[in-house]
């Protein structure tokens, strides 16, 4: 690993994005637009206040997962990955480069969505703002890391897109958004206990409801951050310098 190469990689990915205005617009605007839509669908402030933080958490996760898995897959199929694997670049340089670049995008995404929610839409947060930002950003990082990992198992863009429902939907269903986790069948609760999203959603609830930001919140944050790190390391393990 080499910080200069990691940063050069992150800058390269951001430059690629800069040439692709539409993708940038979609990444930055879509979550905000959906939250605005949610506001008018709910049509009453308390329901909106309850659901908006959920979207703020889930969206960066979803978008980053998709963009990263397809971005790295393109790198594999275009031959640039082979060129990089024959160069002094370390595997983690590449993965962290993606993590940093898309992390920057996630910051933009979350900042805009939060600003619009808190001003125009009058979102009433009962707690502080910063825990929610921390959770949303960590979620984006988790999505990036899982996207990197899953792209190793996809041979085509078609397959990569299909990983999204496989990886994401069960996590969202079992994460305790629709049904509280302790009311699920025991087996489902066990599964939910090992999915990182469950902890992200719990931390987000603490943040949004203004609960005590104490030990439990930080435990959830550590679990989500640890999962992102694990996925990054597994992703690095799936990158091979030598291929068949």
């Amino acid at each position: 690993m080499n910080p200069a190469i990691t940063l050069a990689t992150a800058r390269r990915i951001l430059t690629q994005l800069r040439h692709d205005h539409r993708t940038v617009a979609l990444m930055v605007l879509v979550p905000t637009l959906v939250i605005v839509l949610l506001y008018y669908v709910m049509d009453d402030q308390p329901s909106f206040d309850a659901w908006a933080p959920v979207l703020l958490c889930v969206f960066p996760f979803l978008v980053m997962f998709l963009v990263t898995s397809i971005g790295t897959l393109r790198e594999r199929t275009s031959g640039t990955l082979e060129r990089l694997m024959a160069s002094p670049l370390g595997k983690l340089d590449l993965l962290l480069g993606y993590g940093i670049a898309f992390g920057v995008m996630a910051v933009l995404q979350v900042t805009l969505a939060l600003t619009v929610s808190l001003t125009w839409l009058g979102l009433d947060l009962r707690g502080d703002l910063w825990p929610l930002v921390v959770v949303a950003l960590l979620n984006a990082l988790l999505g990036t890391a899982l996207g990197l990992f899953c792209s190793a198992f996809a041979r085509s863009e078609f397959q990569a897109v299909q990983f999204m429902p496989i990886v994401m939907l069960p996590q969202i269903l079992l994460g305790g958004i629709l049904v509280p986790r302790d009311q699920m069948a025991t087996v489902l609760e066990w599964i939910s206990n090992v999915l990182p999203m469950s902890y992200a959603i719990e931390a987000m609830k603490d943040a949004a409801l203004g609960a005590d930001i104490g030990g439990e919140f930080w435990r959830d944050i550590v679990v989500v951050g640890g999962s992102a790190l694990l996925a990054l390391i597994l992703g690095a393990a799936t990158l091979r310098r030598r291929t068949p």
Binding site: R12, T15, Q16, H19, D20, S78, G79, T80, E82, R83, A86, S87, P88
Partner: peptide, 17 residues
Amino acid sequence: RRRIGYSTQNPAIYRDL
């Protein structure tokens, strides 16, 4: 890795740069 220059058959170039 720094001593060999390698050019693949399909141009390994980022098309969006």
